Simulated assay, not measured.
Amino acid sequence: MLFNKIHHIAIICSDYEKSKHFYVNVLGLEVIKETYRAARESYKLDLALNGNYIIELFSFPNPPKRPSRPEAQGLRHLAFEVDDIEVVISNLKEKDIAVEPIRTDELTGKRFTFFSDPDDLPLELYEK
């Protein structure tokens, strides 16, 4: 198989307005399109990073919780590449987002850390 790239990541949130605010206003992702699907009582928000389509944010009535820590089976985290991890951490902290201490990847020597979205989905910052 010849894959070109990851097309998008789909996230189901528990509170659409709260998650929309987080991904758009806190993380700065761009809204491509917002759709309300009445038959599903669901919003779908298409988001981009630097012009590249990256996330579909969904809302559904009463979605079940998915375990995410510690090391539960399934998608482990979503990682964002950054140029300067300390600048991004400072920006997140200014917006009252808790960020774990910086660690160093023992295999690559690159610095990384984690923070969480409103549904406690682990998000990673990975320094370029």
Rank of each mutant, 00 (worst) to 15 (best):
P70A: 02
I12G: 08
E100R: 14
P70M: 10
G28K: 02
V88Y: 13
P101M: 01
R103I: 11
F3E: 03
Y23C: 02
A10V: 04
S14W: 03
D105V: 01
P64G: 09
Y23M: 07
F3T: 12
F80V: 07
N50A: 14
G28C: 07
I54C: 15
K33P: 00
K65D: 12
I32F: 04
P122E: 10
F60W: 13
A48S: 10
E124P: 06
E41P: 06
E94N: 15
P118H: 10
S14I: 05
E94L: 15
L2A: 08
I11A: 04
L123Y: 10
D84A: 12
P101V: 02
R103H: 08
L57A: 02
L57W: 05
Y126D: 08
K95R: 15
R37C: 04
K18G: 04
A39S: 14
E34H: 10
L27T: 01
D117I: 06
L125F: 09
L121K: 03
Y43F: 06
P101K: 05
T113V: 06
L121V: 13
P101C: 11
Q73A: 13
F80P: 00
F22W: 03
I97S: 07
P118E: 07
G51C: 01
D119L: 06
K110S: 12
F3D: 03
V82E: 01
Y36P: 00
A48Y: 00
E41H: 09
V82S: 05
V31K: 01
S59D: 02
H21R: 14
E71M: 09
H7C: 10
G109T: 04
L121E: 08
T104C: 04
E30G: 02
L78T: 02
L49D: 02
N25W: 10
N4T: 09
D15C: 07
E127D: 04
Y16L: 05
V26H: 14
I6S: 01
R76L: 08
S59N: 02
I9M: 10
L121Y: 14
D96N: 15
D84W: 07
L92M: 03
I89P: 02
K20T: 04
T35L: 06
F58W: 13
R69D: 14
L45T: 00
E127N: 07
V24W: 03
L2P: 06
L47P: 05
A98R: 12
V82Y: 02
D117C: 07
L78F: 14
T35S: 13
R66A: 12
G109Q: 05
Y53Q: 07
I85C: 03
E17M: 13
K5F: 03
G109L: 00
E94G: 10
I9W: 05
F112Y: 13
D117F: 10
D119E: 08
V99C: 01
L121N: 13
I6A: 08
S68T: 15
E17S: 09
